[in-house]
Design a protein around this nucleic acid. Structure first.
Lengths: 107, 107
DNA sequence: TTTATATATTGCAATATTACGATAATAAAC
DNA sequence: GTTTATTATCGTAATATTGCAATATATAAA
C-alpha cells in the first residue's frame, strides 16, 4: 500500500507527525542549521554548502516552507530564505507539549 | 534515486533526523500516547485501539524500539511495551538543543 | 534586447515506507 | 502433546520519498 491512513488519527496527531516528518531528513536539519548561522540566507549558497543538486535543495526548501518554518523573499535575482521564528517557537512548543504529556508508567 | 545521502551529513545531523523521522508517523505518535495513558501496555490492545493490522502495529513498534524509545518485556504470552523514560528525556533534550541553537537572524 | 545568474518545476529512476495477509514462533492452558 | 492466544517475521502490492538532469521562469546586467 504505502499510503499512510491519516483518517484514523486525530488532526493533532497528524499535524504533530507532519512536523516531525518534515524535520526527519538530515538535509533539512542541515539547511536550518546553516541558515541559522548566516547573516544572509541565499539558496545558492546551500547547494555548495550541503552538497546536493540545486533541484534537490529547492525541493527540501519547499517542504520546510510547507509547515511554515521558512519564509522567502525575493532579493534581487536571488532568494532570501529565513527562519520564521514565531512558527519555529510554536512548533517547538507543540513538540515539547507532546514530550511532556507522554510519560512512562510501567516497567 | 530515493536513497538519502547520509554520508554527506554529520552523525549528529543524521541522528537528529532519524529521531524526527521515527516520530514522523501518526501511528507512532498515537502508540506512544496510548502506552503513556495505560497502566499496562500490551501490544494486542494497540491493534484494536489504533485500528491498523497486527503486523503493521508490530512494525511500528519495531521502529520505536530502534531508537530506544520503547523497551518490551515478555509478560506471559503477551508483551509489555513501555516507554524508556531516560531515553525519552534524552531525545527531548537533543531536539530542544537543536531548536534552541537554531535562530532567526534576518528578514 | 540579449545575456548571464538564480531559483522553481517537471519528469524520471531508484529506493523507502506503509500496510496487510499468511505464516512462524512462543508460551499458557487444557 | 495439542490447542489457543499473542507477537514477530516474511512476502508482496501500492504509494511516497529522494535525487538529479533538463527545462522553465524571473530578474539583473550588459
Amino acid at each position: 500500500m504505502g499510503i499512510t491512513k491519516n483518517q484514523i488519527f486525530t488532526d493533532k496527531q497528524n499535524d504533530l507527525a507532519q512536523f516531525f516528518k518534515v524535520l526527519g531528513h538530515p538535509a533539512r536539519v542541515a539547511i536550518l542549521q546553516y541558515i541559522s548561522n548566516q547573516n544572509a540566507c541565499i539558496c545558492n549558497d546551500l547547494v555548495e554548502e550541503i552538497g546536493l543538486a540545486q533541484a534537490t535543495i529547492s525541493q527540501h526548501l519547499k517542504e520546510l516552507k510547507s509547515i511554515g518554518l521558512l519564509h522567502g523573499e525575493v532579493e534581487g535575482k536571488s532568494m532570501c530564505y529565513c527562519i520564521n521564528i514565531e512558527r519555529w517557537t510554536a512548533i517547538q512548543n507543540q513538540l515539547n507539549s507532546f514530550f511532556n504529556t507522554t510519560k512512562s508508567n510501567c516497567c
